[in-house]
């Protein structure tokens, strides 16, 4: 069974966090805290040395996680520990292709089978996805599609054919953690995506506050939001005091659950 197939219809909340951040042990506590709020989706970011599509905050999280030479296997083990079957939260991995390739595609899939429901490979474009998509689908893991404001209609149609799980709409032409949200444009594009596909559309990149979450829900047709950088930013806001961080994380997640 794939939890992503039974996402709620509206106000879906997906929380992104880098594995091993700030340290492997503390990371377990961070994910535990996140999980305790039962968000609809948790995205586990696998740290990469060169996260090209990420902004400064997630870059810093990757760097901190890799400080202690965190391996891919350790990240995958961490995800395994949270035993998805015990709750309704969907698990999704977000990573760069080199991580999967170097680990070995088959070995990677063997490791995440029945552990996660979906995977986002940020730098795997539609043109290159065939073999990977086939292997994933054999193991009931959905390959989540990203659509950007630059993706035109013709291309969207190709990308969205047979899409599963949810669609990740990149709300700003930008890297993760960018700041401007243009609700009109978001709404226009989300509407157009929804005409082509029946799976939920989540808006990510640049969502920072309760207000942003409410605005997306009220001013657009999107089915939910993805929050990442804002969760990590709290750690730096609090001057890296880990206990305070957990508390501020709790408060923030309570706020954005609308």
């Amino acid at each position: 069974m794939n939890n992503l197939d039974s996402l709620p219809k509206k106000k879906i909340l997906s929380l992104f966090m880098t594995c091993g951040f700030p340290t492997l042990n503390q990371s377990k506590k961070v994910f535990n805290e996140m999980l305790s709020h039962q968000p609809d989706i948790i995205e586990f970011g696998l740290p990469f040395s060169d996260p090209m599509a990420d902004g400064p905050i997630i870059q810093e999280a990757n760097k901190l996680a890799l400080r202690s030479k965190l391996s891919t296997q350790q990240s995958l083990n961490l995800i395994k520990e949270f035993n998805k079957s015990k709750n309704n939260t969907s698990f999704v991995i977000m990573c760069y292709l080199n991580t999967v390739r170097k680990f070995g595609l088959n070995k990677f899939i063997k490791n995440i089978k029945s552990i996660v429901d979906g995977i986002i490979i940020v730098d795997l474009p539609f043109e290159e996805e065939d073999a990977i998509k086939r292997s994933l689908s054999k193991n009931n893991i959905h390959l989540i599609k990203l659509i950007s404001p630059m993706t035109d209609k013709k291309r969207s149609q190709k990308l969205l054919k047979n899409s599963k799980g949810f669609i990740y709409y990149i709300s700003a032409t930008g890297i993760t953690g960018s700041n401007k949200l243009d609700y009109k444009e978001i709404n226009k594009n989300v509407k157009s995506i929804k005409k082509m596909s029946s799976v939920p559309v989540l808006v990510g990149f640049g969502i920072k506050s309760k207000k942003d979450v409410i605005d997306i829900s009220k001013k657009t047709n999107a089915d939910g939001v993805i929050i990442g950088s804002a969760l990590i930013q709290k750690y730096f806001d609090i001057k890296m005091d880990f206990n305070k961080y957990l508390k501020s994380l709790k408060k923030f997640i309570q706020e954005v659950k609308i």
Binding site: A53, L97, D123, L124, P125, E128
Partner: peptide, 12 residues
Amino acid sequence: GGMYVSETLMPL
């Protein structure tokens, strides 16, 4: 070779 970039860059 190839084009391994995010969907924001792919159309470009």
